[in-house]
């Protein structure tokens, strides 16, 4: 089962109430928020309504909030090679 990965890149401020309603229905409340929905015609129609505001990718599995956060975390860049006895 594949999912749409939808990220709000432009804010919905100042847009018609209809458009903001679609964003609310998708659960997109602030910029750079990412939501996952299964690939269905209904969701595809919602995306088409706000296609100027979002960036969409098709992914294989939906990530949780924690996994999204872990994705953004940079690599530590070090590891303890030899520790003093403690």
């Amino acid at each position: 089962m594949s999912f749409f990965r939808i990220t709000l890149t432009r804010s919905g401020i100042g847009l018609p109430r209809r458009t903001r309603g679609v964003l609310e229905a998708l659960g997109l409340r602030y910029r750079m928020q990412t939501v996952f929905y299964p690939v269905t015609p209904e969701v595809a129609g919602q995306i088409m309504k706000v296609k100027e505001l979002v960036s969409v990718r098709e992914v294989d599995k939906a990530l949780t909030r924690e996994e999204l956060r872990e994705e953004r975390r940079p690599d530590p860049g070090y590891y303890v090679e030899s520790a003093v006895p403690r």
Partner: peptide
């Protein structure tokens, strides 16, 4: 966190 003086870190990035 988790290091004490004397530890050797390997920087790999």
């Amino acid at each position: 966190p988790g290091v004490v003086p004397g530890d050797v870190l390997r920087l790999n990035r």
